[in-house]
C-alpha cells in the first residue's frame, strides 16, 4: 500500500517534470494536441461515470460542456473584449462588468453544469436505455438552440471571440490529474459501488435499499460537473466558441473515447483519450488529396473512427480495457515474469 503511494508520487513528479519541459520547449501545435489529450481525458472520465459506471445511456454531454464553456468564457472575458463581441445587442448587466480569475470561473462552470444536469436529470432519469439516450440528446440540442437565441447573454450564433487563452499544460494536466484522483476515489467508495450496482441490475439494486433516483441524479450531476469544467478548459484553449461547436458530434467524439477505452474503466478512458486525440491529428492527411487527380475527401479521417467504433462494438465489445484498471502490482507483475510452474503467464 505504502509502496504504491511512493510509485504514484514518483509518477506524478515525472509528469510534473514532463509538463515543465514540454511547456518550455514544444511548439504550439504539439502543445495544443497535448492540451486536447488532457481535456478529453477529463471529458471522457466524466462521461464514463454516467455511461460506463452507472449504466445510464446519456448523450447529453455536449450540452453540459456548452454550459461550462460559456460560463467560463463569460466570466474570464475582459470587459473591452466583451463590448467588442456584443455589437448586435449589448450584454446584460451584471455580466458586462464581471471579470473573474480562471479557477473560480471553472468551478462555477462545473457547478452550473451540475445544476443543469440536476434539473434535466430529475424528470429524464426515470427513462431507461434508448429512451434516456433520446431525451438527453434532445436536451443537449435544446441547450444549443437556447444559446443560439439568447443574443444578450451568449451573443447568439456569432459566438464569443477573444477568450483569453488561459488553458495551458499546467491547467489541463492539473485538472486531468485531479479528475482522475476524484473519479478513482469515487468509484471505489460505497457510492461508486452503488452506481455499479445500478448498472448491473436496477431491480436488485433497488431491493438492496439503493435509491435509484438519488444515485442516478448524483452520478449525472457529478459527471456534468466535470463535463462543465472540461468545456471551460476547452473554450479557453480555443479562444473562440460558438453554439455550433456543441453539436452531437462533440458528444460522439467523447462516446468514441469511452467505448474504445472500455465502458467502466478509468485507465481505458485515459489511454483512449490520448490515442484518439493524437490519431485525429495524425490522420489529418486523409482529408487532403492523397492520390493525384482524385479530389480530396474532407471528413475521410472521421470515417476511420466510425469504422473503428463499428468494429469495436461488433467484435470487441469490452473495448481496450473492459472494466479492468491499472494498478502498480499488476504493472510490475507484468514485467516480473514468474516461472510457469508457479502460475506465471507465458
Amino acid at each position: 500500500m505504502k509502496r504504491n503511494t511512493i510509485y504514484t508520487g514518483t509518477a506524478l513528479l515525472l509528469l510534473f517534470v514532463f509538463v515543465y519541459f514540454a511547456n518550455k520547449h514544444l511548439d504550439s501545435y504539439l502543445l495544443r494536441i497535448l492540451n486536447l489529450c488532457a481535456i478529453y481525458t477529463v471529458l471522457g472520465l466524466s462521461m464514463n461515470l454516467i455511461n460506463g459506471f452507472t449504466g445510464l445511456f446519456s448523450l447529453g454531454h455536449a450540452g453540459f460542456m456548452a454550459v461550462g464553456a460559456y460560463t467560463t468564457a463569460m466570466l474570464t472575458l475582459p470587459i473591452a473584449t466583451k463590448q467588442m463581441n456584443f455589437f448586435l445587442a449589448p450584454l446584460i448587466s451584471p455580466l458586462d462588468k464581471i471579470v473573474w480569475p480562471f479557477l473560480p470561473s471553472l468551478l462555477l462552470a462545473g457547478v452550473l453544469a451540475a445544476i443543469v444536469a440536476f434539473l434535466i436529470g430529475a424528470p429524464v432519469l426515470r427513462l431507461k436505455g434508448d429512451y434516456l439516450a433520446i431525451a438527453t440528446l434532445g436536451f443537449s440540442e435544446i441547450i444549443r438552440v437556447v444559446f443560439t437565441n439568447t443574443q444578450t447573454v451568449t451573443n447568439g450564433a456569432l459566438g464569443l471571440k477573444g477568450i483569453p487563452a488561459t488553458t495551458n499544460l499546467w491547467w489541463s494536466f492539473g485538472t486531468a490529474v485531479v479528475t482522475i484522483f476524484i473519479m478513482v476515489s469515487l468509484i471505489n467508495s460505497s457510492y461508486g459501488r452503488a452506481f455499479k450496482a445500478i448498472r448491473e441490475d436496477e431491480i436488485a439494486a433497488e431491493s438492496m435499499g439503493i435509491s435509484l433516483f438519488k444515485h442516478k441524479v448524483l452520478s449525472f450531476a457529478i459527471g456534468a460537473f466535470f463535463a462543465g469544467i472540461g468545456g471551460g478548459l476547452l473554450g479557453n484553449l480555443m479562444g473562440t466558441i460558438d453554439p455550433l461547436m456543441f453539436r452531437f458530434f462533440m458528444t460522439y467524439n467523447i462516446l468514441l473515447i469511452i467505448v474504445l477505452g472500455g465502458l467502466g474503466s478509468v485507465t481505458g478512458t485515459i489511454i483512449s483519450a490520448f490515442i484518439i486525440t493524437i490519431a485525429q491529428e495524425f490522420l489529418r492527411f486523409l482529408d487532403e488529396p492523397i492520390i493525384p487527380n482524385i479530389p480530396a475527401l474532407p471528413g475521410l479521417r472521421m470515417v476511420v473512427f466510425s469504422i473503428l467504433l463499428m468494429l469495436v462494438v461488433l467484435f470487441f465489445r469490452t473495448g481496450l480495457m473492459g472494466t479492468r484498471e491499472f494498478s502498480w502490482d499488476k504493472f510490475f507483475g507484468f514485467f516480473k515474469k514468474r516461472p510457469l510452474s508457479n502460475g506465471g503467464a507465458k
Binding site: 460505497s190 457510492y191 459501488r193 452503488a194 455499479k196 450496482a197 439494486a205 438492496m208 435499499g209 439503493i210
Partner: peptide, 8 residues
C-alpha cells in the same frame, strides 16, 4: 458491501 450502502 453494496447491500450495506443503505445504512451509510
Amino acid at each position: 458491501l453494496i447491500a450495506n450502502h443503505l445504512r451509510i
